[in-house]
Simulated scan of single mutants.
Amino acid sequence: MSALPTPRRLLLATGAAAALPARAQVPQGGDWPARAVRIIVPFGAGGPNDVMARIVAERLRERLGQPFVVENRPGAGGSTGALIASQAAPDGYTFLFHSSAVAIAPALNPRQAIDPRRDLTPVALVADVPMTVVARPEAPGFGSLAEAIATARAAPGRVSVATAGVGSANHLALALLNALAGIETVHVPYRSTAQSVTAVISGEVNLAFAGIVEALGHYRERRVRLLAVTTAERAAALPEVPTIGETVPGYAVPLWFAIWAPPGLPRPILARISAELAAMREVPAVRDRFLALGAPPLMAPPETLAARAAEEVPRWQRVVAEAGIRVE
């Protein structure tokens, strides 16, 4: 995921399915939807944000009988698309499929970035996805996370760690590790997570913080070693890989994905789409596609997403301030 620059004004940031409950059991939102619905993805096509959004859009189209069209609006580390969504009419025809970057933006640009707690309507917490700590196989001093931390302590400011850019979720996950483990590393920002993993493979850097989607293929081909995952529990797709918290108590940083709407979305529409998303979690064809991404679907209700934002925004404000992170 890319960094979060500060543009002029950022006021706000399948397949066949098993049988589901009859549509009459889903809370009705009047005649909604009566036409195509757009789902804004604030990043480019092909990334995990985009792939998950398209799985969800396909299932909603099947269930609700109208097109759900994914619209990629990249820019400013996800803030451009978030701004567009926040300013759309709250009529149920615009939604935003965003990552945890939406909770990081207020810390990096407090005067201009959108704050999801006030500027968006929470719809569903879709998935928690692990980030991973990536090293080269057989690299001396980096056989495990504990060994990597010991190497960093012995050589302050010499262990290099790649991320997807200044202010990215990967970068802040690294900053939190530095703080909790009491180490000093050299942050090396790249333009994308894929590039940061390639930098580890080529030996340009010692480590990288990378999403599971970008790291999994390289790991299975034994081009990289995964030292740890960032979630509180071990990943279902990688049960053999320990969590960072097993070495650094208290550490847990999932990369999470969620659906939002413009502020003021009518409650009947919110209830209907929330119910459809919750039912989607139990559909094997949907669940299998999420699991292939290393992302067990949560499809948790609006209240859960609101609580996540309420916790995450101030958390990253503290981390950014303490680490002195600045986005140019």
Results as ranks from 00 to 15, higher is better:
232 A>T: 07
263 P>T: 14
230 T>I: 07
195 Q>E: 12
254 P>F: 02
265 L>R: 08
200 V>W: 12
239 P>F: 09
220 R>C: 13
232 A>D: 04
155 A>G: 09
245 G>W: 11
208 A>K: 08
197 V>I: 06
185 T>F: 07
170 N>C: 10
196 S>F: 13
258 A>D: 09
162 A>D: 01
215 A>W: 05
223 R>I: 01
209 F>T: 02
199 A>T: 04
195 Q>N: 01
155 A>H: 15
186 V>Q: 10
161 V>E: 03
225 R>Y: 06
204 E>R: 15
208 A>W: 07
209 F>R: 08
222 R>P: 00
245 G>N: 10
182 G>D: 08
191 R>I: 04
157 G>H: 10
202 S>Y: 13
258 A>S: 11
163 T>K: 03
254 P>V: 01
167 G>A: 02
233 E>M: 14
198 T>N: 07
164 A>M: 11
237 A>P: 09
212 I>S: 06
215 A>Y: 02
197 V>N: 00
227 L>E: 00
224 V>W: 10
235 A>P: 05
254 P>N: 06
223 R>L: 04
253 V>E: 11
169 A>T: 02
163 T>G: 03
255 L>I: 04
221 E>H: 09
180 L>N: 12
251 Y>A: 02
201 I>C: 09
170 N>P: 14
233 E>H: 14
214 E>C: 04
218 H>I: 02
205 V>G: 04
231 T>I: 10
155 A>C: 06
171 H>S: 01
205 V>S: 01
216 L>G: 03
198 T>H: 07
227 L>I: 02
265 L>M: 13
